[in-house]
Design a protein around this nucleic acid. Structure first.
Lengths: 145, 145
DNA sequence: CTAACTGCAAAAACTTTGCACTTTT
DNA sequence: AAAAGTGCAAAGTTTTTGCAGTTAG
């Protein structure tokens, strides 16, 4: 994972370069996304920001997340109507998700690079982003049951 | 893809073996899932069945899909609060999804087998199912824009 | 100053739930 | 007959929308 501060500044630069405004709410969301070791969901981000900005609205959270998503700066992890976000690794990588405790862990190998090329050739698609999810039991939950 | 009729009978046998009852609604859903070349969503399945069974309820669709999912007979493709289902290939395989027309195409290579083993070793997870999604533009939508 | 952004509240979309009724076995 | 399954309608979640008011640049 990147250094949170480095990532924070990186995101600010990218947004500014595109002419987006730096509002306090946006800065706070970017700070959270940059520092998150886990993969927070939209509602988790919303709840966290509300501590600092009680007036924060869900619409703003979704607006900003959509913005970052469209700029390929964050990855959306679609989990059955509860999207989580990975703010540190825009490049394709697998996620390992515990079906019991719902924790999400980053996988380290890169299946994508060569696979994408092959898949594009075979399917004729132009592939823009990927989502690899492995569902199972994390070490803790394995021993629980 | 399997032969739809073969798959249909296969599913019936599996359900019966587990002691589940064969209601007309269930049969119809299984028929649809078996024959679907694409990857229908819950609501698409619901709409289709309503033609035959105007009294069909969403609850029944979801009940049956959950059942099949838990028996690892269908794959759920999580698409931003609109799950689609792959009824023919319970084994891990990639999906290629057009971000414009939303069509879902099956990928043919198997990245999973060796990768899962490696990932299990590194993460300590016990992996039970996977979801590989590649988002992009299909050939038609590429030429459109 | 003004275009961009936010907050609010309502609506939309998908899924789940509870319970009485029906049906498979 | 009994357990399992269905239908209905309501409620729960997450996400989107419209618009008036606010603010960064």
């Amino acid at each position: 994972m990147n250094d949170p501060k480095k990532r924070f500044n990186e995101l600010i630069i990218v947004l500014k370069k595109q002419g987006y405004r730096m509002t306090p709410q946006r800065l706070e969301l970017i700070r959270i996304i940059s520092a998150s070791k886990g993969h927070p969901s939209a509602s988790q981000i919303y709840e966290t920001i509300k501590h600092q900005f009680p007036s924060m609205s869900q619409a703003t959270v979704y607006n900003t997340l959509t913005l970052l998503k469209e700029m390929d700066q964050i990855l959306e992890i679609d989990l059955h109507g509860d999207s989580h976000y990975d703010g540190n690794r825009p490049e394709p990588h697998p996620h390992i998700i515990c079906v019991k405790c719902n924790q999400i862990v980053d996988g380290e190998f890169d299946i994508a690079h060569e696979s994408i090329k092959r898949l594009e050739e075979v399917s004729g698609f132009h592939i823009m982003r990927t989502q690899f999810a492995f569902y199972g039991l994390c070490p803790d939950c394995r021993s629980d049951s």
